[in-house]
Design a protein around this nucleic acid. Structure first.
Lengths: 320, 320
DNA sequence: GGTATTCATAACCTCTAATTATGAATGGTT
DNA sequence: AACCATTCATAATTAGAGGTTATGAATACC
């Protein structure tokens, strides 16, 4: 087993062909150099230096070893550089998890923001159900997940990220379209295309009907948001969806939203991570990006509003 | 400045994904591993391991660092191997010096012998005058030189290697050819083609004439033995040369040797090296080869005789 | 010839990196 | 479920590697 301290001292001594200079390089005293070189020579059973007058120079064996040590300490610099880069977020991986819907509607916006600041960090975006994403934290597959908080888990910290408005969408020609306020009872009469169980939205809507003591008429359930939107556009029923997922269709008049009587439905989208584990630099940077991004107004506004606000702000700046 | 001890411990811990096993690998205790990993993490300001249940595994940063350390400790094995090889004489350089004449007539024989045993040692054979070769020792250009001992030098040790007979050569038709014994006085009358000043042979012959109180008739002087032989073959004069240098020509009848009256001229060929410096393994091996080769009879016999003896011995073996 | 520089040596000291002993958490087993 | 085995963490202590200071010897320089 080589002693790298001795190798390092040898390297500097060989480079300078001068023990005193090597000592200076390493911020130690000259006798320390002499002693360590001697120990190294004993370890190798080889003379590495010859003494010539008041100087030293390398034997053939020393010269051969010097070639090796050069590689070692050049490589050391590379390693130090790599560590520095990881610390300084010039390299690394951000492992995020989220649900399909969020991946489709929020994440591109958030990750673009993140990427603007930390362009050298690779992003791994994992998708799955809220449940699966919480499990992925525990399995250390992801460091941060963005999901609706349904149940709390021991050891997992949830930070509220955004209150996303839930809208009831319907075909523009739907009989209820344009009505002022629709009651839960009325909704229970409608054919509903529902998000699958386990999703944050489903949790919220189930709760809504339980409070109204009604059973919704679920004609279809799926985890696929795109599919739901298409079914509603085809007049197959109404659906509850996160507003930001249908912004475009509402704007374009492909869908309409039905105002719910006396109810404003919100989904609490949270950032979740393990509270006892220290987050990696990329993850910390991501959290910081989110808080910097929102000030503190995301939870109040929802991402949809924030996206609009920032888009406006940016356009304003561009116009100036 | 990286701490390679910590890196080594990290390397083993990462390889095993188990601190206890790493400790076993390194013949230390587990708390030592824990402590050094912790120090490394502090140095990097990066978490390298995550704790999962009763095991550990690498963070992304740890995984990146592990890739680097793998290279380091693979390379360490290479270095250790190289050191071992140098020690075991499976690589290295033998730096010898000698005079042109010896390089031509003795060295091939000696070096072939050496090379048979130490086939992996590269041989650097340097040529120059005896004087220059002694200087090359002092300048550490060569570790061992084989020369005639003319003067002694402080710090240089001379070991007698061989007593080489000096013969007087002449054209086979030379008037003195065949005469029983020729006196120094007679030789002084002859046209002599002499080796240049500084050579061992010249030193000896000068001495011979001084003792006889005669001045030789030097018609030509050169350091080139081959040239001398050719000139003598052309009948330009007689010459004094080391017997082994003219063995072939004498055998083939191209030259004849003149018996010198009452005199047997010998040149003491010596091995010289610096006495205070420790010799390198290849040089020690070379010295050992020489002593093994001769038993103790080289100085008495001369290399020429030894070459014949060994050749005969070998041929005898081959025939059996 | 005196001076400065360089490496070697010796005695001593400091602090790193071990050790021992023990605890806490987890996972497998009966 | 209780128990045991395993693994990493922590604390207190200790050994010794690797450093320092002081000085000497050899050599080169002016």
């Amino acid at each position: 087993m080589l002693n790298f301290n001795q190798l390092r001292i040898f390297y500097h001594a060989a480079r300078n062909l001068n023990f005193t200079a090597a000592a200076r390089d390493l911020f130690i005293t000259q006798p320390a150099v002499t002693a360590q070189i001697k120990l190294l020579e004993e370890y190798c059973s080889l003379k590495l230096f010859r003494k010539k007058g008041r100087g030293v120079y390398l034997t053939d064996e020393g010269r051969a070893l010097f070639e090796y040590t050069k590689h070692v300490f050049d490589y050391e610099k590379e390693i130090e550089f790599a560590i520095e880069e990881m610390r300084e977020l010039k390299r690394g991986i951000l492992r995020l998890g989220t649900t399909k819907t969020y991946a489709r509607y929020f994440m591109p916006f958030l990750l673009t923001r993140f990427h603007q600041t930390y362009s050298d960090i690779r992003i791994h975006l994992d998708e799955g159900s809220s449940q699966a994403m919480v499990q992925s934290l525990i399995d250390f597959k992801n460091e941060i997940v963005i999901i609706a908080k349904i149940t709390s888990h021991p050891g997992v910290r949830f930070l509220p990220l955004s209150r996303e408005g839930i809208v009831v969408i319907a075909h523009p020609d739907h009989p209820l379209a344009g009505k002022a306020a629709i009651s839960t009872e009325e909704l229970a009469e409608e054919r509903i295309i529902m998000k699958e169980g386990g999703s944050g939205t489903r949790h919220l809507i189930d709760d809504l009907f339980i409070r109204a003591n009604r059973t919704p008429n679920i004609v279809m359930e799926t985890s696929n948001t795109e599919f739901i939107k298409l079914e509603v556009q085809r007049g197959e029923g109404i659906a509850f969806l996160v507003e930001s997922a249908v912004l475009l269709e509402l704007e374009q008049g492909l869908l309409t939203s039905l105002p719910i009587h006396d109810q404003t439905l919100f989904l609490n989208v949270s950032i979740a991570y393990l509270e006892d584990q220290q987050l990696s630099p990329p993850s910390r940077a991501f959290l910081e990006t989110l808080t910097n991004l929102s000030g503190n107004d995301i939870p109040a506004l929802g991402i949809g509003a924030l996206m609009t606000k920032i888009r406006t702000h940016r356009d304003g700046l561009t116009a100036t």
